[in-house]
Simulated scan of single mutants.
Amino acid sequence: MTSADHGWNPDQLRHHSAQQSALARFGQQALGSEGLDEILTEACRLVGEALGTGLAKVMEIQPDGETLLVRAGVGWPPGVVGQASTKASERNSEGHALKTKRPMISPDSATETRFSYPEFLVKAGVKAVANVVIGVAKGDRPLWGAADRQPRAAAVQRQRHRLLHHLRQPDRRGGQPAARQS
């Protein structure tokens, strides 16, 4: 199948190739890493790079079953990674993704009507987000998110949705996405 079969122009093909390259680099990093936090941080860096956002995070649901903590991330101001949290509520972007168990894309906070953005996103100047639930194992539900300080066009958001969907796919060997294996 060629790029013409997908209806891609050369720029789209280069972008897709960069995304695939980021996924391959992540796999290599994960295989050589000893700790989950290191893997998650590298995955955030690669996702932010591939999506051109500079901001990416993994949030982890805490023992109370309601609080989401930013477990790993890149591009965030001091005090976010390891410290910022929000309640998993239908009224915010992260809670919406957890409730629906589907990727959630919000291309422009100024026009978003489904929910609000958590305070730490607003303080960081975030204007667009994409969240996806990853690797459900042992009942935990980590949440992967990319964010941008600029609103994003719907077409770009669809491309991000596809990448986030690929990140969510189970590893053919173990049944869990690579980010959840340690």
Rank of each mutant, 00 (worst) to 15 (best):
M1I: 12
S3F: 15
S3A: 15
S3R: 14
D5A: 13
H6R: 13
G7C: 02
W8P: 08
N9Q: 05
P10A: 06
P10W: 04
R14T: 09
R14C: 05
H15N: 10
S17K: 13
A18L: 12
A18P: 08
Q19P: 09
Q20T: 13
S21W: 14
S21P: 10
A24V: 13
A24I: 13
R25D: 12
F26M: 15
F26Y: 15
F26L: 15
F26W: 14
G27V: 08
Q28I: 14
Q29A: 15
A30R: 09
L31T: 09
L31I: 06
S33L: 03
L36S: 12
L36A: 12
L36K: 12
L36E: 12
D37K: 08
D37I: 07
E38P: 07
E38Y: 07
L40N: 07
L40A: 11
R45Q: 06
R45Y: 03
V47C: 08
V47R: 05
G48C: 02
G48P: 05
E49M: 01
A50N: 06
A50T: 07
L51I: 02
L51C: 10
L51S: 05
G52I: 03
G52S: 03
T53F: 04
V58Y: 12
M59H: 11
M59K: 09
M59W: 13
I61Q: 12
Q62T: 07
D64N: 05
D64K: 02
G65S: 07
E66L: 09
L69M: 03
V70I: 02
R71H: 01
V74L: 06
P78F: 04
P78Y: 06
V80P: 00
V80H: 01
V81G: 00
G82F: 00
G82M: 01
S85W: 04
S85L: 01
T86E: 04
K87E: 09
A88S: 11
E90K: 10
R91S: 09
N92G: 00
S93V: 09
G95W: 03
K99A: 14
K99W: 11
I105A: 14
S106A: 07
P107Y: 01
D108G: 00
D108A: 05
A110E: 10
A110N: 05
A110R: 07
T111K: 02
E112M: 02
T113F: 03
R114W: 03
R114G: 01
R114K: 06
F115I: 00
Y117I: 01
P118R: 00
P118S: 00
P118T: 00
F120H: 06
V122M: 00
G125A: 03
N131I: 01
V132H: 14
V132M: 13
V132C: 13
I134S: 10
I134E: 09
G135F: 11
V136F: 10
V136E: 14
D140G: 11
D140I: 13
D140S: 13
R141T: 13
W144P: 08
W144H: 10
G145Y: 02
R149E: 05
Q150W: 04
R152Y: 04
R152D: 03
Q157I: 10
Q157F: 12
R160H: 12
R162Q: 15
R162H: 15
L164M: 14
H165R: 15
L167C: 13
R168L: 10
P170V: 00
P170S: 01
R173N: 05
G175T: 05
A178T: 13
A179P: 08
R180W: 12
R180S: 11
S182V: 11
